[in-house]
């Protein structure tokens, strides 16, 4: 099945000389949730803005469901909904008016039943007659999502969708995103909440200084780049790691009470049995053990800092 979004050799240099995007190649699969991660200023918003028609592309080509965003912009844009990072909303209109306006703006005839459904899904129905300026920040964020969904898009861009919202609303939004995905909508989100990407994304792209440095399924990424850690709580604290254990990547924490062994998550042979036997040989006993896998956040920080060091 052809990708819903195809980006080929996309470059963007602003008038200031800032090269915001460098040779981006990316394909987004139909119906997936794709998380674009990257530090501030990495180019995430520029990439989304180009796809949505807000920023003029430099060189390269972008197609949405086969429609070129320049040559066939009407068909391309009609398929896309955008929830921007900032709370850009009309202030004096009611919730109903502003959401209905968005549907009309995207070229669709009025459909009060659909608008009602969207507002109910986002818990905005009770606020439909309220002026947008009277709403809280979280409610305004919901209004932005409602506006983006008013024209029934096939691709939804969420640019930092849960920035500044409380935990409850964030959970609600995650549930909504999953529900949308279940109806066939492709979701592309940028976030700096790694937890968000870890919770929701099928695939993850990491962008840094305008370069897409990695695109991977979340599970593959965690398997390939994730670290696992074995922590042994010792019976007696150690002052230092014995030389006989130099073959393992070990460290002591908690005043020598915990011995940690770090290994690659995807490593087939972890050498844990050998290590445990060797400890027994050396008379080092432990009373408890636990393992943990590094989070996506740790992977992300590791990736970005590795690149920083390499440049």
């Amino acid at each position: 099945m052809p990708p819903i979004l195809s980006i080929e050799r996309l470059n963007k240099t602003y008038a200031s000389g800032l090269a915001a995007l460098k040779n981006i190649d990316l394909e987004i699969r139909r119906g997936e949730i794709f998380a674009l991660l990257g530090p501030n200023g990495a180019g995430k918003t520029t990439l989304i803005s180009i796809v949505c028609g807000i920023v003029t592309p430099g060189t390269g080509r972008v197609r949405i469901d086969g429609h070129d965003i320049i040559e066939d912009y009407r068909a391309a844009r009609a398929m896309v909904g955008l929830v921007p990072q900032e709370l850009h909303t009309d202030m004096f209109e009611t919730v109903w008016e502003t959401v209905s306006f968005s549907r009309g703006l995207f070229g669709l005839a009025a459909n009060p039943a659909h608008i009602e459904q969207v507002l109910r899904d986002l818990s905005l129905w009770d606020k439909r007659k309220a002026e947008v300026m009277t709403l809280s920040g979280g409610m305004k964020r919901r209004v932005l999502i409602a506006k983006a969904l008013a024209h029934e898009p096939k691709v939804l861009f969420l640019d930092e969708p849960t920035a500044g919202v409380d935990v409850e609303l964030r959970r609600d939004m995650w549930a909504l995103v999953r529900k949308l995905r279940d109806t066939g909508v492709t979701i592309i989100l940028t976030t700096h909440y790694i937890e968000e990407a870890e919770e929701m994304a099928d695939r993850i792209g990491v962008i840094r200084r305008g370069e897409l440095i990695l695109v991977e399924t979340k599970t593959e990424l965690m398997k390939r780049l994730g670290k696992r850690q074995l922590a042994l709580q010792l019976q007696e604290p150690l002052e230092r790691i014995p030389e006989e254990l130099a073959a393992w990547d070990l460290s002591l924490t908690d005043g020598g009470n915990i011995l940690e062994y770090c290994f690659e998550a995807g490593q087939e042979h972890t050498e844990i049995p050998t290590l445990l036997r060797r400890l027994q040989d050396l008379g080092i006993e432990f009373k408890d053990l636990s393992t943990r896998q590094s989070s996506l956040e740790e992977i992300f920080v590791g990736l970005v800092s590795e690149r920083e060091a390499a440049t």
Binding site: C52, G53, I54, Y73, R74, A75, A76, R77, A78, V80, L82, P84, E86, H88, T89, D90, M91, S102, L105, F106, G107, K147
Partner: peptide
């Protein structure tokens, strides 16, 4: 001024 121009620019309108 308010930033809502994003919606106009991203709409399928000439």
């Amino acid at each position: 001024f308010t930033g809502t121009i994003y919606e106009l620019l991203s709409a399928p309108v000439s």
